[in-house]
Design a protein around this nucleic acid. Structure first.
Length: 614
RNA sequence: GGCCCCGUAGCUCAGUGGAUAGAGCAACAGCCUUCUAAGCUGUGGGUCGAACGUUCGAGUCGUUCCGGGGUCACCA
């Protein structure tokens, strides 16, 4: 985004607050081109890239397109433009070189140290001013008949992180969840509990409520399978057996009773959902998921019926002979879609229409984001289309942030086959791994028990969140237990380690020098790694922008990893505390402070905390 | 079958139409008397699924094909 024209009367340092290097260079090039060749240019007339490490320079203008337009050889054009840019912005650039069709520009060291000095203690570096946009992010949205599993974790981490990234881009964000607290699946657990529990409760068995209820869901399926097999052995067909199994009939009756608000059914329902919520809350608290507003399907499942009536009157919807109501989407390459059953009850999509409407009315949203798996791409497309056809104004403000399934190395997760990775178990395992590694290394033996436990949580969850967020959400991912448990390389703990390492340096230096108030970082020749770090730090603002536009936390994860990697190379090469001169020491302290700040900030956008020591 | 997504190193993944396609893991070889070795440095490993096409230039864009997945319920 371009905010203003570069002007030689304004010192470049001013731009640091309002404009990224890359924007500044782009405008500089446009201006110098116009001056040179007497015609107007735009950012589409050339390409601006980061210079590849094997060449000298920081940013590169690709000249080929210009070569064509201006009918000059790349060498001549590059030289003329390089000279002109340097002449126009002598403070900002210190040199250029032309190789083939590439004009490589080098930023002046003084600009880099100025940028560092301006920003190195700024906790909000890279984040944007409020843009007065209201965005709702719906995520998590669990069923209350079984505990959360690995797939839910990807959803939760993704939703939470995207919400944070959107906040960092200046949006006002409302996090919500729609709890799927009613329906046949809940009744299954309820029936099984009535049949087999003999009054047991999570308190009596000392079990987490969601797991407790989930166990009865499994028991239901076992019983159901048994009954179906019995009926088949009595000579019934599979279809008939599945319909007539007594336990299934009971469950369907219970659903009807629930809908008629039969008190004893509602009471049991409330009781068992209460157990589940208690279990969920524990998990949510542990993984850091939170919601500004929770919708319950039991409150929203009747919504949307008004629109059916209205749609019928406007002839947008039509009724079939059996009384069911449909919408024809064949003009959008979609089929006819049922919106009301023949018995007059609503289907999933009917409530979705109603809830969407409620969200926009209640919160005056500019955008509504749904974090839902990609198996519902079709459903969300249909929903959007129906809303558009019904003439609701917010159809284009609905965005489905779809993400791929998490699969295991052994294949897909299936709850009925017991091949799910339970969320709580996985977290425990990751935290235990963190404990194991930490004990082996023995660096924090002086920590109290409480401090150690906190550290294990930070590291275990950091590893897990990073593992699930480092891949493009759109792609389905394979969960490899051995790899996920690795704390080396492209992992959360690696990045956390870099942070802790910097804190260690600063603690040691801080005792005799003020670390956070360096007056005047001296100019001077920067070493390659010093330059690279400052240039990389400067990019953070654009990274936040990209991640926001794409709604993709993996952009942050990749950036923060590369930053940590670069710092570690720097660390191995140059000493901060024992720098060659006091000027270099000041500079490197500032680089270290800013690096740790950006790491902390970036990880925070992923929902990952940083330890001061590890 | 229609529509949608994916195919890059042994594995997991990066890669705004631009220079010799990059990381991590795994393998191998080095580096702890100096700021945390959960680290650093190096080596090996690729017909970017295939073929055409567009372009000065294609892993990236288009078409076709091959392979994998999803989806097309009076389920949620």
């Amino acid at each position: 985004m371009v905010y203003c024209q570069p002007n030689d009367n304004i010192r470049p340092i001013i731009y640091f607050r309002i404009m990224s290097f890359i924007s500044y260079i782009q405008l500089s090039a446009i201006k110098s081109l116009s001056q040179l060749y007497g015609q107007a240019f735009s950012e589409n007339d050339f390409q601006l890239n980061e210079t590849k490490p094997e060449f000298e320079g920081d940013y590169t203008i690709v000249l080929f397109v210009l070569v064509k337009a201006l009918k000059k050889s790349p060498e001549v054009l590059g030289k003329e433009l390089g000279e002109q840019i340097l002449k126009d912005h002598p403070d900002f650039f210190s040199g250029y070189n032309v190789i083939k069709g590439f004009l490589n520009l080098t930023i002046d060291d003084q600009q880099l140290t100025s940028l560092l000095e301006e920003n190195y203690t700024d906790e909000n570096f890279g984040k944007k001013e409020p843009n007065h946009q209201k965005v709702m992010v719906e995520y998590s949205s669990p069923n209350t008949n079984k505990p959360l599993h690995l797939g839910h974790l990807r959803n939760n981490f993704l939703g939470w992180s995207v919400a944070e990234i959107l906040k960092a881009n200046g949006n006002e964000v409302i996090k919500t969840s729609i709890v799927n607290d009613r329906g046949i699946h809940i009744c299954k657990s309820m029936i099984a509990w009535e049949m087999f529990a003999h009054g047991e409760t999570p308190d009596l068995t000392n079990e987490k409520g969601d797991h407790f209820v989930g166990d009865y869901y499994v028991k239901f399926n076992d019983e159901y399978k048994k009954e179906v097999e019995e009926l088949i052995s009595e000579g019934k067909t599979k279809e008939v057996a599945e319909k007539e199994a007594p336990v299934m009939k009971k469950t369907q009756q219970m659903l009807l009773d629930w809908e008629q608000a039969k008190p004893e059914v509602r009471e049991l329902w409330k009781l068992m959902n209460g157990w589940v919520y208690k279990g969920f809350d524990e998990t949510y608290k542990r993984i850091g998921s939170d919601f500004d507003k929770t919708f319950y399907e039991s409150n929203t499942y009747l919504l949307g019926k008004d629109f059916v009536k209205e749609g019928l009157e406007k002839n947008i919807l039509f009724k079939k002979e059996d009384g069911s109501v449909w919408i024809d989407l064949s003009d959008k390459n979609l089929d006819e879609k049922l919106v009301l059953r023949s018995d007059g009850t609503s289907v999933y999509i009917t409530q979705d229409i109603g809830l969407a409407q409620q969200k926009f009315e209640e919160y005056h949203l500019d955008k509504s984001i749904y974090v839902i798996g990609d198996e519902q791409l079709h459903h969300m497309k249909v929903l959007k289309e129906i809303i558009r056809k019904l003439g609701m104004p917010f159809a284009d403000k609905i965005f489905h942030l779809s993400y791929g399934m998490v699969e295991l190395t052994t294949g897909k997760m299936k709850s009925r086959e017991g091949t799910v990775v339970d969320a709580d178990d996985l977290i425990d395992e990751m935290v235990a791994t963190a404990e194991k590694h930490t004990e082996e290394l023995g660096k924090v033996n002086d920590f109290s028990k409480e401090e150690l436990e906190e550290l294990y949580e930070i590291l275990g969850l950091g590893a897990m969140k990073f593992y699930l967020l480092r891949v493009d959400p759109k792609k389905r991912m394979i969960f490899n237990p051995e790899e996920s448990i690795d704390f080396h390389g492209f992992t959360g703990p690696f990045v956390q380690y870099t942070y802790a390492r910097i804190q260690s340096i600063l603690r040691k230096i801080g005792s005799d020098e003020p670390v956070l108030n360096i007056d005047g970082i001296p100019a001077g020749k920067l070493l390659p790694l010093e330059r690279q770090l400052i240039i990389m730090l400067e990019k953070y603002g654009n990274i936040i922008l990209d991640a926001g536009e794409e709604m993709n936390p993996s952009i942050i994860a990749n950036y923060v990893f590369n930053l940590a990697k670069l710092y570690n190379s720097f660390y191995a090469e140059h000493s901060v505390a024992n720098a060659e001169s006091s000027e270099k020491k000041k500079l490197r302290i500032a680089i270290s402070v800013m690096t740790s700040g950006v790491i902390k900030s970036g990880l925070q956008l992923l929902g990952i905390k940083v330890p001061e020591r590890m």
